[in-house]
């Protein structure tokens, strides 16, 4: 167990307490969530402290994130999506922050825990469904019956559509979870190889160059995956939101 690659995912309580019967213990996971929020706040507020007409480097970076998410919302949801932009921006920054924080040595990856991802995914799912029904009432159900489909095919298709709709929160959360889990396990496994090989002797010491090289490359790949999965989570949220806004295909 000492060098298990799963050890990095352990939740370790820092201060155990509960509020109104709910376990609200402050753990390493909570600590990293707080750290990520602080870092994002520092990045955003610090970058905009001057709010100059001609942006400096820091402000330009903040604007790049803003433009990136705003473009995503505009392209996938349209102008009506503007009201949900702050939420989607928060979602993107939070997931990206947690993913990237997980790349720091000795850190903890908040998004490697399925429950955290599922928590966000279920909020997105319920929120989108609610928005759909509020905006279109029963008309939202048209989402499950695409136009231009033969009538005899409809019963089958509606069932399939409903199932695929209901699995959205699961696929959304599992995708991020699996990516984070697999990547971090792989990195830990190869790091373990380096340690155990270099303990053997000179030959092992030289041979450890191989897993070391692999780990360097994996680090690059994992940073890419961290960004990509934050993007995927966000853009799927946008697409689901678009379904709620415009249910007719």
């Amino acid at each position: 167990m000492a060098h298990s690659p799963l050890e990095q995912f352990q939740i370790k309580p820092i201060a155990e307490f509960s509020i109104g019967g709910i376990d609200a213990s402050f753990t390493n996971s909570s600590a990293w969530m707080v750290a990520v929020v602080v870092a994002i706040t520092f990045f955003l507020v610090g970058g905009m402290r001057k709010a100059a007409l001609v942006p400096g480097r820091w402000q330009a970076m903040v604007e790049v994130f803003y433009d990136f998410v705003a473009g995503m919302v505009k392209e996938n949801v349209g102008r009506e999506g503007k009201a949900y932009f702050p939420f989607i921006f928060t979602l993107f920054m939070f997931i990206l922050g947690c993913n990237l924080a997980g790349m720091l040595p000795y850190s903890f990856t908040v998004t490697s825990h399925i429950i955290v991802n599922f928590g966000m995914a279920i909020v997105v799912f319920l929120g989108v469904t609610l928005i759909g029904f509020i905006k279109h009432g029963a008309g939202f159900l048209r989402l499950f019956a695409p136009s231009g489909v033969p009538v005899w095919l409809l019963p089958l298709l509606v069932v399939i559509e409903v199932i695929s709709y209901c699995t959205r929160p699961i696929s959304l959360s599992v995708r991020l979870f699996a990516n984070m889990l697999a990547g971090h396990i792989m990195m830990k496994v190869f790091a373990g190889f380096i340690i155990s090989m270099s303990a053997v002797g000179l030959a092992g010491y030289l041979g450890a160059v191989v897993p070391f090289t692999v780990n360097v490359l994996l680090t690059g790949l994992e940073i890419l995956v961290a960004c990509l999965q934050a993007y995927v989570f966000t853009i799927l949220t946008c697409i689901y939101l678009n379904d709620a806004m415009h249910p007719s295909h």
């Binding site: 909570s30 990520v36 825990h113 955290v116 966000m120």
Partner: peptide, 13 residues
């Protein structure tokens, strides 16, 4: 561990 994670996710988010 789910409860505490969800609580802190909610708070921080």
């Amino acid at each position: 561990t789910y409860e505490e994670q969800l609580v802190w996710l909610f708070l921080t988010f």
